[in-house]
Nucleic acid binder design. Structure first.
Lengths: 154, 154
DNA sequence: CGTGTTATGTTATAATATAACAAAACAGGA
DNA sequence: TCCTGTTTTGTTATATTATAACATAACACG
């Protein structure tokens, strides 16, 4: 699903963006929040809260669930990560500067989640809202299936 | 969100459809499965597994979680209910004869979930799959926001 | 350097879901 | 009918995901 790119670069890039976004918004990008975001990106795919917990635990001493959930809440609120409801998992947002409704192609084979935007989808959803006299606040669109790589590999 | 219709009718209708679908598929629509489907419909909105559990418990003696989850799994597999991932809840499918990808407008005010189908959305999703060389298996599309009734009521 | 605010630590527990095995109900042929 | 394999349900235990509530620490800024 992803070419063999320098993943370190995208982690570094995500962190830099996070720093500048938080600065701009006047919110604190603390060490903990940074560590969590880092772990999310290092994982390179959807990661679960308790897996973050475990990984933090090996670094720092005895981290408890609320610590992780609070950091994740912060990251969600500030558009730095997305939550995948169908997996109870989290992924880094790949365009946090313009964080908005987007959708995910989730491969059930390799577990990767590809973040996408589509104007067609956005307009379709907007129209839908208007037709039903409904004011959308948040969209969850998750498509599970098989990605090209995994299909090819069979 | 829903006109004052005879809700009993739609429960009865849902049960009849369930019976005929199960018969057609050669699967067993047992008393338990029927009770669970009934409770889902009676609730008239998304209902959680443990609420079903509680309600069954008052009827029959001491129902345990697996009982409910197994019945829900059956109903999901046979297209009789949908699962709303963003709520961890379940709703009856309003067109089980043609159960397929559809989406939900979920009002955060009244909690109702409106099931919709939209060809525009289906085509947009299909196109998206093709463009990304991804073979979609299942689509979760849940839009939270405010429905006309609730907005009007303010 | 005090003080209010924001963030983190800590304990406990709530809410959601499944594994694994036992008992029962059912279906279909001998 | 009754045997037998299959499907369903019961039961116990436990895994997984998430939050409430209150204590302590870190920070920001006058």
């Amino acid at each position: 699903m992803h070419p063999q790119h320098e993943h370190k670069d995208c982690i570094a890039n995500a962190l830099e963006q996070a720093i500048s976004i938080c600065e701009e918004k006047g919110v604190r990008f603390t060490r903990l929040r940074r560590s969590v975001l880092e772990l999310v990106w290092e994982n390179h795919g959807p990661i679960k809260a308790y897996d973050i917990l475990k990984q933090l635990d090996s670094d720092i001493a005895s981290v408890k669930p609320p610590t992780v959930y609070r950091a994740l809440d912060f990251l969600l609120e500030n558009g730095l990560v997305h939550r995948l409801n169908s997996l109870n998992a989290f992924v880094g947002c790949s365009h946090p500067e313009a964080h908005k409704d987007c959708y995910f192609l989730i491969c059930t084979e390799c577990g990767e989640a590809m973040e996408c935007c589509s104007n067609d989808l956005v307009t379709a959803i907007t129209k839908t809202g208007q037709k039903n006299d409904f004011r959308p606040a948040h969209v969850t669109l998750e498509i599970t299936g098989e990605c090209a790589d995994c299909r090819g590999a069979i």
